[in-house]
Design a protein around this nucleic acid. Structure first.
Lengths: 199, 199
DNA sequence: GACCTATCTAGTCAATGACAAGATTGAGGG
DNA sequence: CCCTCAATCTTGTCATTGACTAGATAGGTC
């Protein structure tokens, strides 16, 4: 009997919260109607056991969204570590990592940017979201450390908007390519980022 | 007794479907947990009356999303009518109209770009979405009728991504302004569009 | 006027979210 | 080592929900 099933047989799971987040992320991604009780079933515990870790289903969604930001942060950090000495290239590759994350986890990605669905505000969510954002901030600062605050404001908002928007269009399957020269969302994104950095 | 209440007293409502979409849009925007039965109550009919117009709740969501596209199209068309002789200016103002629509109806806006939540595909939704998109297509074509298809592909995707992304950041309250010179999302958007059009 | 179809009402059932009460167990202190 | 307390679980309950069904009403057409 594997470890998970064995744990399910014990009264005290011992590590239920992180397990619920891990299973929750999968369910939210894969099922049309993920639910609190479905999550409990998938974790092998009684229907209200998760409520001792998450008061409501909205708290589960917030925890899963925070976990999404955690993963996105790790992706962005890894890219920066590889291209740290080429700030513009780092930014293009961070955009690509953002696109790839959205492709891998489209439902969580949408949830991460849906303050109406996340009707609970948790510190965990806020701090993870902020950490991810700060990777982008530092990367843009690195492209020109002497830029004015006003120009930085323009760049951070327009660059993030372009990266985020391209990710949304991609997961909504709205990227339009009429020629057959193999242009991709990443190539459009890169050219757009180059244009914004030059402006 | 007003017309709506009078209709509610009759057995045959007579115009229930459009009424359900109108009420549904309001509910989806205003309530944390809009539901099929809540919609029926708000319309003053029995709990399963709406099912004769919408087989499932997902069909209600799809109809409301299509209605959102209908309204967005009207906004974009109105802007084009006013700035038709200045294609670039028309594009900037269409971006502003897009931002304004997202501000007015953030929940519907998110729903319109959430293929996972819209697990039914209706012809109505597809045609209204396509009509809205085509306003953008024509507007970009108008800025330079001689542009190549490959350049057009780059422009339509990056411009739409920038406009959409800026709208998402705005309704998620993520537009960051560190200076107090009154810069707005529209100003960032406009500068970004200028940069993309010049690239 | 009869018939048919569209559109409604009323009912049913399984699943759900949230809440409550009690059971189990792990950790800490005496 | 034992006791206590809190954390974490199980079981149960209730109102509401989505989807489905059966029957009632009424508008349109022939």
């Amino acid at each position: 009997m594997d470890s998970v099933a064995k744990k399910a047989q014990r009264y005290h799971h011992g590590d239920l919260r992180p397990e619920l987040v891990r299973i929750g992320r999968k369910m939210i991604e894969a099922e049309a109607r993920p639910s609190f009780r479905g999550l409990a079933r998938a974790a092998g515990v009684s229907h209200s056991a998760p409520q001792h870790h998450f008061p409501t289903w909205s708290h589960v969604l917030a925890a899963c969204a925070a976990d999404g930001y955690r993963e996105l942060s790790a992706d962005l950090e890894r890219v920066k570590a590889n291209y740290g000495t080429h700030p513009s290239e780092a930014l293009y590759k961070m955009g690509d990592a953002y696109l790839a994350f959205a492709d891998r986890s489209p439902v969580i990605f949408r949830l991460m940017f849906n303050r109406s669905a996340l009707d609970v505000r948790t510190d965990e969510f806020a701090s993870e979201a902020s950490a991810a954002y700060n990777h982008l901030v530092r990367s843009i600062r690195d492209t020109d450390p002497s830029m004015t605050d006003a120009h930085f404001d323009y760049l951070i908002n327009s660059i993030w908007a372009l990266i985020h928007g391209m990710s949304v269009l991609q997961i909504e399957r709205q990227i339009c390519v009429s020629t057959d020269d193999g242009q991709t969302a990443y190539q459009f994104l890169r050219r757009g980022l180059e244009a914004l950095l030059e402006s």
